[in-house]
Amino acid sequence: MAGYSAHKEDVIRRLRRIEGQVRGVRRMVGEDVYCIEVLTQVSAINAALQSCAVALLDEHLACCVTDAIARGGDQAKDKVGEATKAIARLIRT
């Protein structure tokens, strides 16, 4: 089961909002809107994606990683390693 299952609808709602923002930027470019206005919207999309990623990471840590640590063994090490790699990817972007 995915760690975000309890909040799946919230994640989907966030992603739909981001999808709408991307369509809006595409429309802005098609209408030759001023560059800075387009860049402002791109920045907003990036912030929304980061926020969604942090929420998913929080759910992963609270559910998947916590459960694996409670069970112990190699699975705990694997889940912590996965989380560490995910965090590293997030801070590189």
Rank of each mutant, 00 (worst) to 15 (best):
V33N: 07
H60T: 08
T84R: 13
E82Y: 10
S51W: 02
G73Y: 10
L57A: 09
R71Q: 15
V29S: 00
S51T: 14
C64P: 00
R16H: 11
C35K: 04
A47E: 12
A48D: 03
R71W: 00
R27T: 14
L61P: 03
Q41N: 12
K77C: 03
I87Y: 07
K79Y: 05
Q41W: 00
V65C: 08
T40N: 14
L49G: 05
V38I: 15
T84P: 01
E59T: 11
V11F: 11
E9K: 10
R26W: 02
G24T: 01
L61M: 11
A62C: 06
L57Y: 06
V25I: 15
K79H: 12
A88W: 00
V22Y: 00
D78S: 07
D58S: 13
M28C: 06
L61N: 00
A2G: 00
S43Q: 15
L15I: 12
I12A: 15
L39S: 06
C64M: 03
I12C: 04
C64T: 15
T66N: 05
H60V: 07
D78L: 11
T66S: 03
A44P: 03
C64L: 01
T40Y: 01
K79T: 06
L39M: 14
N46V: 09
L90W: 13
Y34D: 13
I36R: 14
L15P: 02
I87L: 15
I87P: 12
K79V: 02
E59C: 10
K85A: 11
V33G: 07
D10C: 01
G3N: 02
L57E: 02
L15W: 07
A2I: 03
L61R: 04
A44K: 05
G73A: 08
A44N: 08
C52F: 04
T93W: 08
A68H: 09
A86V: 11
E9R: 08
T40Q: 13
L49N: 09
L61W: 05
D32Y: 04
V29T: 08
A48P: 01
S5A: 14
R92Q: 13
S51Q: 15
Y4F: 07
T93D: 05
C63G: 15
G81R: 09
A83R: 04
A48K: 01
L39I: 12
S5Y: 00
V38N: 10
E59F: 06
A70T: 08
L39R: 13
G24W: 01
R23L: 10
C64Q: 07
R16T: 11
D58E: 14
L15M: 09
V22K: 01
V38Y: 06
